[in-house]
Design a protein around this nucleic acid. Sequence first.
DNA 1: CATAGATGTAACATTTATAGTTACATCTAA
DNA 2: TTAGATGTAACTATAAATGTTACATCTATG
Lengths: 138, 138
Amino acid sequence: MINTRVAVAVHILALIASKPHDDLPSDYIAASVNTNPVVIRRLLGMLKKAGLIQTTAGKAGASLTRDPADISLLDVFHAVEPKESLFAIHDNPNPHCPVGKGIQRALDEAFGVAQDALACKLSSESIEDILHQLFDKA
Amino acid sequence: MINTRVAVAVHILALIASKPHDDLPSDYIAASVNTNPVVIRRLLGMLKKAGLIQTTAGKAGASLTRDPADISLLDVFHAVEPKESLFAIHDNPNPHCPVGKGIQRALDEAFGVAQDALACKLSSESIEDILHQLFDKA
DNA sequence: CATAGATGTAACATTTATAGTTACATCTAA
DNA sequence: TTAGATGTAACTATAAATGTTACATCTATG
């Protein structure tokens, strides 16, 4: 199971996007997410490093660097998840066994195909889509 | 990142499929995977519970219950990964915040789409495909 | 310019999942 | 009967995720 960072980061970005004219302190965001403000600031740091938001030390609030429609869930995923492989593969299979020798490459290939499909879908969903889900009455 | 159980389980099944006439003891499989035999037996237990293999207590070896072409990586995934959701979602977002109130449902929806795409690809790859990757010369 | 309130970040604590290990009851087959 | 397996419980070790405390530093304002 993938950690909650992706979910929380989307929550944060949706919150910022939903109040573009307010400066939301990390305490406020933390109250919405229901966690510690430092957890929020850590994630804001990662989102900033990924270029998705802008902040100023000492000054409350964070702002999106681009339109919510142009921030995909894949962007968010990559911002908060450093590992490039979704599936872990065991180390040091026996190189003297025909299966052990080639299994890592075979798994890389097979898992890669699946991961690409996941990434493709994530790249087609945006923060704006999340906002619509949140606020558009069915 | 997803645990190594899926990778190891595929390794195990490929090994069994590659030697259909041998009874491979868990010690042998463990030597190929490079881990402890009990780890292998645990995974064999899960694969058996999922109906992918057959074993007999006290008797060496496990056999596939169906053709390698009919065992998909999605089957393996579900056999060793009990959680139905790939992405974790944080608990107890603030219900008094408009974003907090609806975020879980929105994320469920968004992540579900991506997870379905992943599952689709995994279901289209079989143990037989892995064997081909391992043994067919390019 | 002092100060209240914010960010940025290090350091530590807690919890949980994963993986490895030991031990042993039980079964199979020779 | 006995050697060699499986099945499984129980314990250990390790790592990752999350929560928390503390504090340096910055911003804006009276």
